[in-house]
Design a protein around this nucleic acid. Sequence first.
DNA 1: TTGATTATACAACAACTATTGAAATAACGG
DNA 2: CCGTTATTTCAATAGTTGTTGTATAATCAA
Lengths: 109, 109
Amino acid sequence: MDHPTAVLLFDVLASGVRLDAFRLLVKKEPEGMVAGDIAAVLDVPPTNLSFHLKALTQARLLTVEQEGRFQRYRANIPLMLDLIAYLTEECCSGRPEQCANRGLTPNLK
Amino acid sequence: MDHPTAVLLFDVLASGVRLDAFRLLVKKEPEGMVAGDIAAVLDVPPTNLSFHLKALTQARLLTVEQEGRFQRYRANIPLMLDLIAYLTEECCSGRPEQCANRGLTPNLK
DNA sequence: TTGATTATACAACAACTATTGAAATAACGG
DNA sequence: CCGTTATTTCAATAGTTGTTGTATAATCAA
């Protein structure tokens, strides 16, 4: 992952609505959810949610697929893993011992 | 880490100058750097850098310590590790198998 | 104390972002 | 074909963020 991409992803995640939408869709993997259901669960107007879903999709954090009149959104988990790897590398940059043995056991709990 | 904190951290990292400053200071751990040197390396006006360092410091991603006339900044690596753990947990939420065995070996380069 | 240096605070402005309702687009069911 | 439903686009507005120069505060060296 390059730095402009990381900045873009942080920018997109730096919104309560967008972070909530992404987290919701992670929970709903792999079925995903259609836009109206996301709006209902998060209790935001559809027009506003559409704005945020578009931002997430343009940043590739979500994928979207048409299903008749519905738009089904899904979380792009591999991209999030790339972002985590980027952060981890930045954080340890030149000093791997900084990150070692600090309870970074992401796959448990 | 709670969600408002995560949103705040993403917001602060969603800037090229701030992300560069943080990465630079991670590399310079544990000595840190004084504000003027950071401005020189990143080639941004001191007044602008001060604005961004303040944002990073208020979000606790940096610590600052006075040294005579100088302000010495250091990266708060434990907080970044908390953020990484939060992201990892969100990303795996309810579906740990999503994150397992995907090359997430953060401590090796 | 004086003069130079380091850094932050302030003020002004430009640019960007979020939110909303109304309108448009597209697809379904009858 | 027509009304209904799902979603997005558009336009207007309010609020936020980034950048810069100038001014201020604090420290040091002589």
